[in-house]
Nucleic acid binder design. Sequence first.
DNA 1: TTTATATATGAACGTATGATCATATATTAA
DNA 2: TTAATATATGATCATACGTTCATATATAAA
Lengths: 122, 122
Amino acid sequence: MIQERACENGICKVRVVHTEKIKEARANSPSEKKIDYLSSIFKALGDPSRMKIVFALKDVEMCVCDLAAFLDITESAVSHQLRRLKDLGLVKYRRDGQIYYYTLKDDHVAELLKSALNHMSK
Amino acid sequence: MIQERACENGICKVRVVHTEKIKEARANSPSEKKIDYLSSIFKALGDPSRMKIVFALKDVEMCVCDLAAFLDITESAVSHQLRRLKDLGLVKYRRDGQIYYYTLKDDHVAELLKSALNHMSK
DNA sequence: TTTATATATGAACGTATGATCATATATTAA
DNA sequence: TTAATATATGATCATACGTTCATATATAAA
């Protein structure tokens, strides 16, 4: 078992047991930026309400009050969540008079959900 | 534009604009149970630290202090996060003396991450 | 045994989150 | 115009989260 200690009698107390594994992980992992982006996407889908919204918009274009009725939460709550999804680029809307029709912005999210469903249901 | 109101002059103020769309969404969406499960998985990956952990464990078996060094956070913090991942069934460990070697529990998560990377990088 | 080590676990703390209520804005109808 | 409607937005609040510190547990070494 490899055991190393940097600056043993100083302040530094970093313990590194398997240096080469850490190196390998560093080499293979996505950049910090990519990690942050990816995890923000997963976080957005990591809430039942938002996941329901995204599933609903996968096939059908819906307005805010439709979604509110479907989710059984306030229209305000839906609007807030839609804003988060829109800010992340997962959702877009078209406007017809007073009504905002929301849909998924592109297929990436739908694909992601599909593969999630596939993998998880095994 | 279809506009319906149930219990107009009562307490109920549910507004339903497109009944058929809501029906369709209901028909096509996964069950509440599945939504909860799926969103909990996404939530688990919706944090940079946990996502880094999962990416690291994708290829290499690592112990807690390796991960702590890799992530540059406390071993305690890593341990807490590993527990969450383990409770969700995303991660497992084998023990060799005092050292716990963690890996991904199965390929589902790795696959999910892979498709996420693919879809998002376009 | 006693001590060191690797990890787990609980408490604490600041911060983020998701919902609701109240209010603002913008379009349509009267 | 004025009133109604559809949605957006800001404030608020209880709760959940992620980290660290302190401590417990269990194995290994002396």
